[in-house]
Design a protein around this nucleic acid. Structure first.
Lengths: 205, 205
DNA sequence: GCGATTTATGAATTACCGTTCAGATTTTGA
DNA sequence: TCAAAATCTGAACGGTAATTCATAAATCGC
């Protein structure tokens, strides 16, 4: 048998394992998944997994990294195909959304925090975090509704806009948390207000 | 001793444990923290922790929920104090940023995915995810720079705006992933383009 | 067909850590 | 000061799950 075909078959089996692993990890989170589960789902014995991956960590991180590379490539291809700036921005957004739609399970992994056990306590915690998130978005939404009613804001979809503002602020905090040097984050307020307010304000007034 | 004072002291010790736990959880993630560590850091024996919390899960979820409640209350108070819509939006953003600045450790917990072990593999995975994120933001930033150069966009801070667009799109995907009924997400593209483009476009043109 | 080589198997090994609990220590109220 | 009650302690228990490895099955080249 040619070595080339051998490699092809090896990669085929490896990919099959990763595919099952993706499903299971996104449903339960890294620490609640056992190698036995992945083995069973992919039709191998536990020991066999170790022919394809050095460890559980290696399996998991291979799965993530390979998917991220795929996404990155897909998006850049679409963007580069567009000619002008407006087109590139639209292509970027559309490509991202499309990839998420096709890989919903995968993205759920990043949504998942530490609180994803199967126990009642952790399920309740998860639910409360999500409820709190919806609460906050609704709180913001009501402010925006008032703004539209009194004419300060134009008629944007309030729910989407509220979520947008929430995440706009979050984007600044994430940048700040990741950055090693930390000047005060509060100075970023004006930028958020600027971007968001220009996006939603009523130009007719 | 009056029962009231007893309760005060109980709560004081409980809070001290939660304070240490917050630090440790945010540094290492739920599954990489042992009860022994929390005990040592807070100056109790392992067994004593179980006088204050039913389990590790209970300890963790109490810590999260109590902090979230604090944040929610702080933000709402600021917003309610503001009179008009513009003021409320500004107050909302400022209060969120202030709370993040004061509780940076805590928010790092939510930044943390599943990939936070102490091993080389998981550290490398984490680093690659962060690198990928910065790569993507830079990729977007370059598009925006080109847009400013050719006059289509006004002179916004490109780095911040790129991160904003990235997270604006992410906000839509998070909403979509959390929602039980799923019409196609791609239809949200126009909303993102609308909000973002109005925020950054050059009105002089 | 047949020995050699590669690949698959899953019970046994090993290590870890949440939780318990019997006994030590401290605090309480008189 | 003292015994009863409350609190603290940490070694031992029990369960779990990643990893290993001797053995079996499959595949290979001839």
């Amino acid at each position: 048998m040619r070595a080339e075909r051998k490699e092809r078959e090896f990669n085929f089996r490896r990919a099959a394992i990763l595919e099952q692993a993706e499903k299971i990890f996104s449903a339960k989170g890294y620490y609640n998944v056992t190698m036995a589960e992945i083995a069973e789902a992919s039709g191998f014995a536990i020991g066999s997994l170790y022919q394809f991956f050095e460890s559980k960590e290696d399996l998991y991180s291979s799965m993530i990294l390979e998917k991220i590379d795929l996404m990155s490539a897909a998006i850049r291809q679409e963007v580069n195909a567009a000619k002008d700036v407006t087109g590139k921005i639209e292509a970027l957004i559309a490509a991202q959304l499309q990839f998420v739609e096709k890989n919903a399970d995968f993205f759920r992994i990043f949504l998942r925090g530490q609180s994803d056990a199967l126990s009642e306590t952790m399920t309740a915690l998860n639910q409360k975090i999500i409820d709190g998130y919806f609460d906050n978005v609704m709180f913001i939404e009501n402010i925006l509704k008032a703004g539209i009613k009194c004419g300060v804001l134009r008629k944007v979809p309030t729910r989407d806009a509220a979520s947008a503002l929430f995440h706009l602020t979050r984007s600044v905090t994430i940048e700040w948390l990741l950055k090693p040097t930390k000047d005060s984050i509060v100075s970023k307020k004006d930028f958020i207000v600027d971007i968001f307010f220009n996006g939603v304000k009523n130009y007719d007034q």
